[in-house]
Amino acid sequence: MTKLKTIGLSRRFLGLVAVNKVSFSMDEGEILGIIGPNGAGKTTFINLISGIIMPGEGKIEYKGQDITYMPAHERARLGIARTYQLIHPLENLSLIENVMVGSIFARGHSMREARRRAADLCGELGLKDLDRDTSKLTILEVKKMEIARALANEPEVLFLDEVMAGLNADETKDLIATVQRIARERKLAVGVVEHVMGVIRELTHRVIVLEAGELIAEGPYEEVSKNPRVVEAYLGGAA
């Protein structure tokens, strides 16, 4: 079943076309890789879908509903969640309280219920010592907290913006398994932006490739990685 769909989605910043007529769709239970060289428009694309910025043209549909210009907090309530590349844990809130925010505001749970659910989520992700100050967390724990925070919205569509960046090989392996398990158990549609191709190969069922804001290829990673246009986009004219 199609969860999310864009049709000719575009956004320009002062003449620079950051996202150019991108049409794609994501199905329930699918892990989709979003790849492309730096500046290809991957994060802008996620920002458009999550409502952080509004598109210039095109359409976004979530489960058949037009959400093109819906405010971000309403999309969060509808079931679209995301993590951020640059994570800012909420100071003055403990680890568990950071995770509670989505549960309280996106789902409308009471504080008590939100705390219970946040504790469950943290447990599921292997986070311990939940009353800790967020400044005391390791990188892996911060990444997991960010994922838990997004999952607190109880989403159906989840975007992960470079959650593996900065992790070592073991940690990456651990997090890949975690994301796969979470996606499977919740039947989530997951969009993953990642620069490490090993992660994309391991994790995703399908990838889309953006270059200069345009969707230039689509398909399973093994296939797309051999596509001459994709190779050229990554390596430049030299290849």
Binding site: S50, H73, R77, R82, E97, F105, A106, R149
Partner: peptide
């Protein structure tokens, strides 16, 4: 929770509803 989230980062606050 609302005010602290807003103070820290409005964008991430929005994404949490």
């Amino acid at each position: 929770f609302a005010l602290t989230a807003i103070r820290n980062n409005e964008i991430s606050a929005k994404s949490s509803g």
